[in-house]
Design a binder for these strands. Structure first.
Lengths: 199, 199
DNA sequence: ACCAGCATACCGACTGGTCGGTCAAGAAGA
DNA sequence: TCTTCTTGACCGACCAGTCGGTATGCTGGT
């Protein structure tokens, strides 16, 4: 059992998670064999099946990490200070920033959803829904205060925006000309302007 | 040889394409076996390998169909009549409409990209890029005419918007309360407003 | 009218190989 | 000695693709 500061190396469980994340993002869940994962982590299958119930369980853990992190950050910005517009802008820019910082997780999240076992999928979907609802409530708050347009339902605005976030994994490259913060600002600007009354 | 109106049934090739589309969209490319596809189409493996070179080839054909259709429609709207804003709005609403009408194709398109053989993927990506460029040029045209905001690069606006289109397969249900046209109008409105100067 | 020759369309058993997962056994610290 | 962690050989299921074969019908020579 790894105690505090016992080993220089990452513990086996972490190494497996990291290796799996990289491989799943690169080649997809189904195209990655357990053998490849354990080889990349420098262990054998027995070790993997000691820490995880199945290949599916590994994927589920990756999902869990992302979901918890995103939810924590969203709550922090949504419940923070400032006007609704400021809080929504900050939350939107932040989710793009963290998505870009964890592009592999994001790719897996949006591409391998259908590979999860039905039960696991239900859990993930429920957690995802709560996240969306918190975001939607922010939009709703602005609409009720009269600072946002009401002609497009809040629910749809959220789906519209998260499509763009989802899509980042497809075109964004960390070594490209744009930083995550820049993309975050651009996208948050577009979102806010699409919600702001014309005159 | 099927002459005009000779057979009531769809020809085998079409049946295979349809069955594969449905199954790939439901369970993903890698999780669908050739055996399942031919069973759903009511033929055997021999028939499939008579019409297609490989399982990959089948996927490639599905991609080709979607790409050709989308490009044709975009050109029609982009080169049509009306102001830039009107043409962009029409093209944006239409791509959402056809995406909703062919949700299975769309799911496959955005989810199974990485399963294609490298060569095939290059071809698909190139065609996809041309599509994006045509769309971007529309935005650029509006920016140069001064009717659209210029603070966000046209390229980024396109990536922003197509993320939302991409995402449709995740949340839209044909038997839900919204028609494709309604979603198309909402999303096109959001896009146009995000491009329109505030005052 | 007939037949040989050939192409198209399709069948389904089979092959070589891969995969997720199991398990008996060993190493090492407490 | 007991527990925790790790090994690697192994199993049964499954999969993409192959191949020898059949049925049908068109074509041109007689």
């Amino acid at each position: 059992m790894a105690r505090l500061g016992t080993s220089v190396e990452e513990p086996v469980r972490q190494r497996l998670l990291s290796a799996a994340t990289r491989l799943f993002a690169d080649k997809g869940f189904e195209s990655t064999s357990v053998q490849e994962i354990v080889a990349a982590a420098g262990v054998t299958k027995g070790a993997m099946y000691h820490y995880f119930d199945s290949k599916d369980d590994l994927l589920h853990e990756i999902y869990g990490r992302v979901l918890r992190m995103q939810m924590d950050r969203l709550r922090h910005f949504a419940d923070g200070e400032g006007t609704v517009a400021e809080r929504l802008h900050a939350a939107a820019a932040d989710v793009i920033n963290t998505t870009v910082d964890n592009l592999d997780d994001s790719k897996i999240f949006f591409r391998s959803n259908h590979q999860l076992a039905p039960d696991t999928r239900k859990v993930v979907r429920a957690e995802r829904r709560r996240y969306h609802e918190r975001f939607r409530d922010l939009v709703l708050e602005g609409q009720q205060l009269g600072v946002f347009n009401t002609d497009v339902p809040a629910e749809m605005v959220v789906d519209f925006f998260f499509g763009s976030v989802h899509h980042l994994g497809t075109w964004y490259h960390p070594d490209g000309p744009l930083t995550g913060s820049e993309v975050g600002r651009y996208f948050a600007d577009l979102l806010l302007r699409s919600l702001t009354p014309a005159s």
